[in-house]
Design a protein around this nucleic acid. Structure first.
Lengths: 340, 340
DNA sequence: GTGAAAGCGCTAACAG
DNA sequence: CTGTTAGCGCTTTCAC
């Protein structure tokens, strides 16, 4: 690796002190110097190809201009747009993000957080937490600024960017009710994850509010946000033998898996069963059965999260923020009039 | 932010010198100390919650244990698995990766590289390069270890992990020929990107080798690796009026866009036209027309890339590596016997 | 086997 | 306005 150009190199080249160079290169302090001096230094820096050593800067200033971002799984198409939203905003403010994934493993998440703490990240954006989450606790305990996005914890100890799952469920339900469905099943997602939990309770509460009695046989648990989990849950639902004309799946992958299993058992979607998903994952409109779903503003969530962590950094004593974004129903071809 | 625990804290706590603590905590040097001393230090470190300050380490050692990874676009489903493969391997070796995306913009890529250079990354893995690419040149010029993955540059100046596009095209072509197709169109991808270029020439060469005359009217250019570009290219192909019974698309997204446009113009896939794609993007089997495609080992490419950059770091004078991985045909439902 | 001290590249008092 | 100097947290040579 070629020897790096340092402040000292520029200083010697110009016959001035390193601090002069440092001042000239920093917009905050450059006004201390004559315009002429500034020009000279900047020119020399350009000429020699100077790039500031962020490590030294960080060591000195005690902040690294870095934000750690942890997502459960890069392969789940929900997260890349969030990450992109985060990076977009952070880069603009000359922050860098370090991404890691937790594989939905709480220990891994904590390991990553410690690793990043060692890298002096200034704060965290977590899309990975469970409703109870040791990694969030760790951050709080160590007074490391942290905000949660998409998923969050139950305890009211941290800034949150979430979507209004109640509203999402309401829109899904209203849509199905309008189509005449009354026997509406739910494939719930893991209850230790906020989205799974909130959607589950929203379903129960809203059904009741609409005067529909809850049939416990119509509620099954998927043990992950995945296709396979959707298939399996549907298998169980069908095995129970209770009749239904519509299914609300806790996310799109589960919904797609559901449709697959329905068809395998000779039920067509939407002719026999309507299905609605959650999240509006990319390219969903291109799927075999274009899924009616609840669209969530992922990139915007990411941006808001980035904005919020920077505010929190600037103002650690700001009251806890809780930002709720509105999802919206996207009707496609997996839902139809109830024929029952 | 809570005060960080440093070596000095542990040293004072124990009444020893910081260098002793440093030695105890580093496996390489801990053998200098008595077992007893080692134990004491480790215990104290645990107790106080010590985490090494990577910035200080990096500043001292001149290496940051960080690799910069640049992909053109996180949203293109080809890249997350590559990134994941990279991170998997790097993490195991206690390296951290910093991800950035270039949006296929050469200036942005270069900006990101300079930014990361400032963060003292030890090397780069680039999935972003064009066939001629200033960011690769920059790395070479500044003697920063760099390897390219998936895409690469023409010049033979850098380590590469690529797939055998010739073989991929051959498998696609053979499959179509076996089904009786002779009038096979190509939707080429941007020619300034290695995959686009290689697939284009493989098509030309292999067609000729198989005794099929090339009809220039059957070759159209998509101006991106996207759905929309696929639609547009297909529109042009159809407008030219030349007859064809099969299309090879330079990637899956283009292929899907192609099918969409075909159907819009009342041509069914695979009944009227067979289509094959490239890359086997996730969930492709769930699409309306499950695309026959050329599968590439993305996670493995990422892992190999990570492995290679670490080797290159260890041994800068190692001869240039050029690793070629084999793709393989995946037959699904977008290809059928030629009825022409 | 362990301590003392220098120094990685940078910034920020403090002087002048 | 600019130079001097100390020090961020760590590793490592050199002493002892």
């Amino acid at each position: 690796m070629a020897r790096k150009v340092t402040l000292k190199d520029i200083a010697e080249h110009l016959g001035v002190n390193t601090s002069t160079v440092s001042r000239a290169l920093n917009p905050e302090t450059s006004k201390m110097l004559t315009a002429e001096q500034n020009r000279r230094v900047r020119e020399a820096a350009d000429e020699l190809g100077y790039v500031q050593n962020t490590m030294a800067y960080a060591l000195k200033k005690g902040r690294s201009m870095t934000i750690g971002v942890i997502v459960p799984d890069l392969m789940n198409p929900v997260f890349p747009p969030i990450v992109k939203g985060v990076m977009n905003h952070l880069n603009k403010q000359s922050y860098t993000s370090i991404i890691a994934y937790s594989e939905n493993d709480i220990d891994l998440a904590l390991t990553e957080i410690k690793r990043m703490k060692g890298r002096q990240v200034d704060g965290f954006i977590l899309a990975s937490p469970f409703r109870e989450d040791a990694s969030v606790d760790y951050c709080i305990e160590h007074k490391i600024p942290v905000i949660t996005v998409h998923r969050t914890v139950d305890k009211n100890v941290v800034d949150k960017i979430v979507i209004d799952n109640e509203s999402g469920m309401q829109q899904a339900l209203e849509h199905l009710l309008l189509l005449g469905h009354r026997r509406i099943a739910l494939i719930a997602a893991p209850q230790n994850i906020s989205d799974g939990y909130q959607r589950y309770w929203a379903y129960r509460n809203l059904l009741t509010e609409n005067g529909i009695e809850i049939d416990e046989d119509l509620i099954v648990q998927a043990d992950a946000f995945s296709l396979e989990a959707g298939r399996e849950a549907t298998r169980e639902l069908l095995a129970r033998g209770a009749s239904f004309t519509a299914v609300i799946a806790s996310n799109d992958l589960i919904g797609i898996g559901c449709i697959e299993e329905l068809e395998k058992q000779n039920l067509r979607c939407p002719d026999d069963v309507s299905v609605v998903g959650f999240n509006n994952m990319p390219y969903l409109d291109q799927f075999r059965v274009p899924l009616t779903t609840i669209d969530i503003p992922r990139a915007r969530m990411g941006e808001k999260a980035a904005k919020l962590i920077l505010e929190r950094l600037k103002n650690p004593d700001m009251p806890l923020q809780h930002i709720v974004l509105e999802p919206r129903l996207l009707v496609r071809r997996s839902t139809a009039l109830c024929k029952g």
